[in-house]
Design a protein around this nucleic acid. Structure first.
Length: 159
DNA sequence: GCCAACGTTGGC
DNA sequence: GCCAACGTTGGC
């Protein structure tokens, strides 16, 4: 079991939007970065836990918790000429881009980015690295536990 | 809207 | 395979 942080622009899909989806599940389409894609293809497993992070918005930060709900499968938007994620170099018989499905677990209080940065225990957290732009980053088990128990005052065993 | 960082593209 | 140009990300 691994832990992840996945960025979403709340204008596209916020934690509340995820909670309102049918089955509270959404396809994590639109990733067009090989490193992030490879995480989904090769390292994610159904059941992995995810911090749902709001990015490119007035108050960026962790907004909730989700779970990986499917294996990686070809991202449908790469074949859709009307989509902003269309990739003319991709073809159904050799897809370039994959996504997993992600299911809502719970909303949390918003932990703003500056509050994350202020924690010495999170000094090495991947998403906080200078100029990090990866939309999906691994989270160390120690970091996961620290954020859950100390910052959110939640019991990791009750998710 | 600015801008720094960084991944990707494409000419050579 | 190098590297300059360009596009994107994302915090501020």
């Amino acid at each position: 079991m691994r832990y992840w942080l996945m960025k979403s622009e709340p204008d596209d899909c916020s934690i509340d939007d995820l909670a309102a989806m049918p089955d509270q599940t959404v396809a994590w389409y639109g990733v067009r970065n090989y490193q992030a894609r490879n995480f989904m293809m090769h390292q994610m497993a159904v059941g992995d836990l995810v911090f749902f992070y709001h990015s490119s918005c007035p108050a960026p930060g962790i907004a909730g918790i989700a779970r990986v709900a499917s294996p990686a499968y070809p991202d449908a938007t790469q074949f859709d000429a009307a989509s902003r994620f269309f990739d003319p170099k991709s073809a159904p018989e050799r897809p370039r881009w994959f996504n997993v499905d992600v299911r809502f677990v719970r909303k949390t209080r918003l932990i703003p980015l500056p509050e994350l940065r202020a924690q010495p225990a999170l000094a090495n957290m991947r998403v906080l690295a200078p100029a990090n732009r990866l939309s999906i980053t691994p989270v160390d088990p120690d970091e996961w536990r620290f954020i859950l128990t100390t910052m959110l005052e939640l019991d990791p065993d009750e998710l």
